[in-house]
Amino acid sequence: MASTFKVQPTRMELIKLRRRIKMAKRGYELLKMKRDSLITEFRNLLEDAKRIMGTMAEKYEKAMQKLALAIAVDGIITVRSIALSRQCEPTFVMHRKNIMGVVVPVIKREEKIIKCCIEREYGVIGTTARIDEAVRAFEELVDSILEVAEIETTVRRLLEEIDRVKRRVNALEYRIIPGMEATAKFISFKLEEMDRENIIRLKKLKGKKAKRA
């Protein structure tokens, strides 16, 4: 390992390194826990996400069919003019929630989006049931789009975070901690070696001194 031989083999360096290893190990444990709890959170959401996204896709298909039918029978101009007559826009309130450092949106609907046909702004008499059905299908679609918006973003962001944390955990486990441990081992070995050299040197000097005397 390249980093093994860049350090000075001193006791100070060894102490510093040991401290860093301890720190890295603690960080590693924490990150591992974070990863596990993120995955738990994700698995709780997954079933809901599947269901909600599935319904949304179905509703989209249905709404598009109904709209095509309404256009085909009543003509595009009628449909467009009804679209212009609609007044109340679907609104909602958006909050931010924090799941272990991941910011996700929470959507709350202020008023119900699906309305009864007399609540809509166009007249009941002048229009046909097909248009009513198309409008209703789209109201349902928007309702479920809002649900999807919340859960899909949450799932997506959790996944990104899991990916990131996993990378860091793996880097610490397989690269950084073993590297630092190898360096520490190298330093302590070198220090021992220097100790032994010193002892030999002293013995030799002692022997020379004894000869001279």
Binding site: R80, A83, C88, E89, I113, F138
Partner: peptide, 11 residues
């Protein structure tokens, strides 16, 4: 977009 106009979305 026409379908969403029918719900009253203006944006």
């Amino acid at each position: 977009t026409l379908g969403f106009r029918l719900v009253g979305i203006r944006d």
